[in-house]
């Protein structure tokens, strides 16, 4: 899942080299933290969070196949 978020973010931003993604999980959830260059924040969030929502939808669909855990994608400042 981490790689999927990284791939999506790199494709969307202007500064792909500044994208970094980390993830940690416990028994119930996987938390994926996405960081991008400050000027690229809009590129991964979008108006009214529309891009962020699309990223989460895709990641959740990918995870639904083999994970029972809740997936959280956080975009970090």
């Amino acid at each position: 899942m981490r790689e999927l978020v990284e791939f999506l973010a790199r494709a969307l931003v202007d500064l792909p080299e500044s994208v970094s993604v980390t993830s940690h999980e416990d028994d119930y959830s996987i938390v994926i933290e996405l960081r991008v260059a400050p000027e690229d924040m809009g590129k991964v969030i979008g108006k009214q969070g529309r891009i962020a929502k699309a990223i989460r939808t895709v990641v959740r669909a990918a995870a639904a196949k083999d994970e029972n855990k809740k997936i959280i994608v956080d975009i970090m400042q």
């Binding site: 891009i51 699309a54 990223i55 939808t57 639904a64």
Partner: peptide, 21 residues
Amino acid sequence: GVLIGRRGETLDALQYLTNLV
């Protein structure tokens, strides 16, 4: 089916992201 999702929500998300890229 995984790529379509409930009421096509995953397909719509893929479509939106692909348009952006």
